[in-house]
Amino acid sequence: MTKALKASGFLGLAVMMAVGLHQFVMLSGGNAVPPWMIGGHAHLGVLSILAIVMGFAVPALEVTGTLRTVVTILFIAGQWGIPGIVWLGEGFGLLFLMPTGFLWGGALIISMLIMLYATLSQETTTQSGPTGTAPADD
């Protein structure tokens, strides 16, 4: 599952960079970049970086089983849902999609609250030096 988070993060950054290049072409042609395009670009960039971080945080906090699956699915859904509705809703006039922002935002919030739970419920141990082998990716 953490492989999915990392892959989604890197794919999101690639898409965000392609959109950024498109915005540059628009600007160099003397055209203004629409605010909805800028907003989606920024959200996808930040959420993609966080997806990569989550790909390392989930195993580091030893989130396993159903919680690991739920965190992964909810975060990836929010990562793509938030910029997606901005681009589709505002950019393509599909305004009926805009209220789903609460769904995608809620998915992100729930995934973060699960990670908070994992952080607070984890046993604290004092270790010095390396802890052995790095956790394997799934």
Rank of each mutant, 00 (worst) to 15 (best):
G101R: 09
P99V: 06
A136I: 09
I52P: 00
A136P: 00
S8A: 12
I110D: 02
H43R: 03
R68V: 02
S121Q: 05
I49H: 02
G106K: 10
Q127F: 12
F10H: 05
S8W: 04
Y117F: 12
I38G: 04
F102Q: 06
A4T: 11
M112I: 13
T119R: 08
V33F: 01
V58L: 05
M37T: 11
Q79V: 09
L5W: 06
A4D: 02
I110R: 06
I38W: 09
T69W: 10
E123F: 12
G105P: 11
I52Y: 05
T66N: 11
A14C: 14
W36Y: 12
M26R: 13
T2Q: 08
G45R: 08
G45H: 03
A51L: 12
M54D: 01
I85R: 04
G105L: 14
I49V: 09
L103P: 01
P35Y: 13
T100D: 03
L50V: 14
F24M: 14
E90M: 15
A51T: 07
M17L: 14
A134I: 09
G129L: 11
P130H: 12
L13T: 15
D137C: 03
L11M: 15
L61K: 15
E123K: 14
I109Y: 07
M54R: 04
A32P: 00
G55I: 03
T69R: 15
F10R: 07
T133A: 12
L11G: 01
M112P: 00
A4S: 03
L95H: 04
G84N: 07
T133W: 04
W80G: 02
A107F: 06
M112N: 13
T133K: 10
L61M: 15
E123N: 11
Q79Y: 02
G45E: 01
M112R: 12
G129R: 13
H43P: 00
V25T: 06
S128M: 09
T72E: 02
G129F: 12
I52C: 03
I73L: 14
A107S: 15
W36Q: 04
I114H: 12
T64S: 08
P34D: 08
